[in-house]
Simulated assay, not measured.
Amino acid sequence: MRPETAIGLLADSARLRVFSAVVLGAATPPEAARAAGTSPREAATALRRLRAGGLLEEADGRLRVPEGAFEASAREASAREASAREPQPGSPAEEFRTGDPRRDALLHHYVRDGRLTSLPGPLQRRREVLRHLALNSFEPGRRYPEPEVNEVLRDWAGRARTDHVALRRYLIELNLLDRQDSVYWLRDDIWADFHV
């Protein structure tokens, strides 16, 4: 049974009271009507709907809740919820997949189509965005001459309100890249986990 079906059946106050009466031990329609405080006709209508919906059954002349009625609904709801949490194509989580929803949201805000849209003001957020840029632009252990670094950073800075020279300076200042004699490389500790 779909969770929406169970919720819909129990959304009516008379059906909810009759269902509760059966759960609490009412075994016949007259007992359910009395315990629920409804008329026999109202109880009969509620019981018919609850049986048709699969929330109640009658066995050996006694009303009862089918075993596992809610477990199946809970499993289905849980499976749908897990499926909804899976990244959808084109979603921020699909694009970045860092495993951290806050980090994915931050990157989605400042990075579009592999380009910076702007840089965050707060230092830790700026560092996280630039860390993403560095990890997606430079290979560990490889040395890059300054003209090559400039070319990569020009591509990133295309839509941002900053230029490649500022990006290069930030990458050095934030200890994401190292530099010596106009040669740049990723720092070994760039893999450390930063927090937004």
Rank of each mutant, 00 (worst) to 15 (best):
L16P: 00
P120C: 06
A82H: 06
R64P: 04
R75C: 07
G53W: 01
R64S: 14
D60T: 04
G90E: 03
E71Q: 12
A69M: 05
E95N: 11
G61P: 01
A79T: 14
L24N: 15
A21I: 09
A77W: 14
L47W: 02
L106T: 03
F70A: 08
L119M: 07
P92E: 02
A27C: 01
P66Y: 01
R34Q: 15
E57A: 15
E81D: 05
A77F: 15
L50Y: 02
A84I: 06
G53I: 01
A36I: 07
P92V: 01
H108M: 02
T45M: 06
R112M: 05
V23K: 11
L16H: 13
Q124H: 12
R15C: 01
A33T: 05
A14K: 09
P87R: 13
L55E: 06
R102L: 13
A105T: 02
L106H: 06
L50A: 09
L107H: 04
Q88F: 14
S39P: 07
P89Y: 12
A52I: 03
L10E: 11
G37S: 03
T45C: 04
A43M: 07
A44S: 14
A21H: 07
A14H: 12
L9W: 04
D60F: 14
A46S: 12
P89N: 09
D113T: 05
A52F: 02
V22G: 00
P120Q: 09
E81R: 14
V65N: 12
H108V: 03
E128A: 15
D60N: 03
D60E: 13
D104W: 09
S39M: 03
L24W: 07
S73L: 04
L107G: 00
A82K: 11
A105E: 12
A32T: 05
S118E: 10
P66W: 00
L9R: 00
D12F: 13
A43L: 02
R75A: 15
G121R: 13
R75D: 13
L56H: 02
A93N: 10
L119G: 00
E86V: 12
G54D: 07
T117N: 02
A35H: 02
R102Y: 07
A74Y: 13
Y110A: 03
E58M: 14
A26G: 01
D104Y: 12
A33V: 08
E128C: 10
S78P: 08
R125S: 15
E42L: 04
D12R: 10
A33Y: 07
R126C: 04
A26D: 01
A77I: 03
L9Y: 05
L63G: 01
L106M: 03
R49Q: 10
S78G: 12
R85H: 14
P87E: 10
G114S: 12
R126K: 15
A36R: 06
G121M: 09
G99R: 11
L106R: 00
G121Y: 11
E95G: 08
G114Q: 11
T98P: 01
A21L: 12
E128D: 10
S13P: 08
A32E: 10
R127T: 11
E86S: 10
R64T: 07
E57F: 02
R51Q: 12
V111Q: 00
Q88C: 03
S13E: 10
R126P: 04
